[in-house]
Computed example of a mutant assay.
Amino acid sequence: MPTVRALQRQWPDARITWIIGKGEHSLLAGLSGVEFVVYDKSTGIAGMRALWRQLADTRFDVLLHMQQAIRASVLSLGLKADVRVGYDKARAKDAQHWFTQHQLAPHPNAHVLESFMDFARVLGVEDDRLAWDLPVPDTARNEAQVISGETPYLVINPCSNVRLRNFRNWSVEGYASVIEHAWVQHGLKSVLTGGGSALEREIGEQIEALCQPASVINAIGGTSLKGVLALIDQAQAVIAPDTGPIHMANAMGTPALGLYASTNPQRAAPYLWRDFAVNAYPDAVRTYLHKSVDEVSWGQRVRHPSAMMLIKADDVIAKLDTLLAHTALTASAGSTDED
């Protein structure tokens, strides 16, 4: 999104077409100045052919190949473009550099957001200020209001995507401890969010069973993506592993406390809140890869089911206290400036 906004500032009249998945489109629908072409990943090559037919009469000046999966590279072959821009060889995955003719300049150890912004920079964009401006319709805000009520709250999204060898989920007991602390010490309820998979529902129920009824609202499987975005927008903070809602919080300007052990927060933590991420990644690399962070490649994952258990509840609670104190101080300073 910051890349799109930077391009729009540079060329307000440019036509921007975004090929996007169904789920992602449900979050970004209504975005100003962007034409979406929705691709259902589950349709495979048949879906690709349908998309190619849809765009058969369209020739783009530039194709920004920002998605590194081999599926996206194959899909790109059926699109007409004068220039195809992709990652430099060091950052490219799944041989993406074979599918593009112009690569980004090297940017060692770049955060994911910076890697995306490099696509605007390579086109000559100099104003790379960060802006998201995600649309939140009134229906989503009403949905969030019904769920959260009037009490101040945190959003906790305990599960990452249900994928093979993902290993980004923290412990039920850890979340319950944080919820108890937030309720007793800060008077904050915790709203649990997530998808409707059996695993996510089960984890939500387990967390809820360990908490005081008044301290938690279990909304897992009970919201739209826009509804989650609205909940996040009004939350005091968001706590989650490396998954969509922690980055949605970053986009909405909501304080974000990311939980990182299997992925490197220097590369993937919510960009504006990197200093508040709980970082057990060095411990995980040392424990399960038997190396130091400096000895592994940038972006190396620790694919071990126990990696996230290196995160301790006391560390998350301490970070939450620091984050809430920081945001209260910032809000107070802003109020003084306005006065």
Rank of each mutant, 00 (worst) to 15 (best):
L64K: 11
E205V: 09
L63N: 04
G194M: 00
A269R: 03
Q185P: 09
R121V: 05
S224N: 14
T151S: 11
L324W: 01
N169A: 11
G47S: 12
D283G: 03
L64Q: 00
L64H: 10
I147N: 07
Q266I: 10
P158K: 12
G244F: 12
H181P: 03
R121A: 00
G227Y: 09
T287R: 15
P137D: 01
E208M: 05
M308F: 02
R84S: 02
S148V: 12
W170G: 11
R91V: 01
A269P: 02
P270C: 06
P158S: 13
V125P: 04
S76V: 10
K22I: 14
G221N: 12
V155L: 01
Y153S: 08
Q300C: 05
R201G: 12
W132M: 03
K80D: 04
G78Q: 11
A81V: 01
V228I: 15
A182E: 01
I207C: 06
R274W: 01
A182C: 14
W298D: 02
G44K: 10
Y175N: 14
D242S: 14
E208A: 01
M248P: 04
L259V: 07
D339P: 03
S197C: 01
N142R: 15
P265Q: 13
L154N: 07
I239A: 04
V184D: 11
V302F: 08
L51R: 14
G174I: 09
Q67K: 15
E338F: 13
R286M: 07
L272K: 14
S332H: 11
T243R: 14
I156A: 13
S197H: 10
G86T: 09
A176L: 02
D315P: 03
V38A: 13
L164V: 13
V85E: 00
Y87D: 03
M309I: 08
V191C: 01
L75Q: 05
Q8V: 00
N142T: 05
R274G: 02
V85Q: 07
Q8W: 00
V38K: 15
I16F: 08
R274C: 02
G204A: 11
H290M: 15
I179Q: 09
H97K: 04
E143A: 12
K312V: 00
Y175L: 10
E295G: 08
T100C: 10
F99M: 05
A240M: 13
P106T: 01
V172P: 10
A90C: 06
S297W: 10
L229T: 08
E338C: 02
V155Y: 06
L210T: 01
E208K: 12
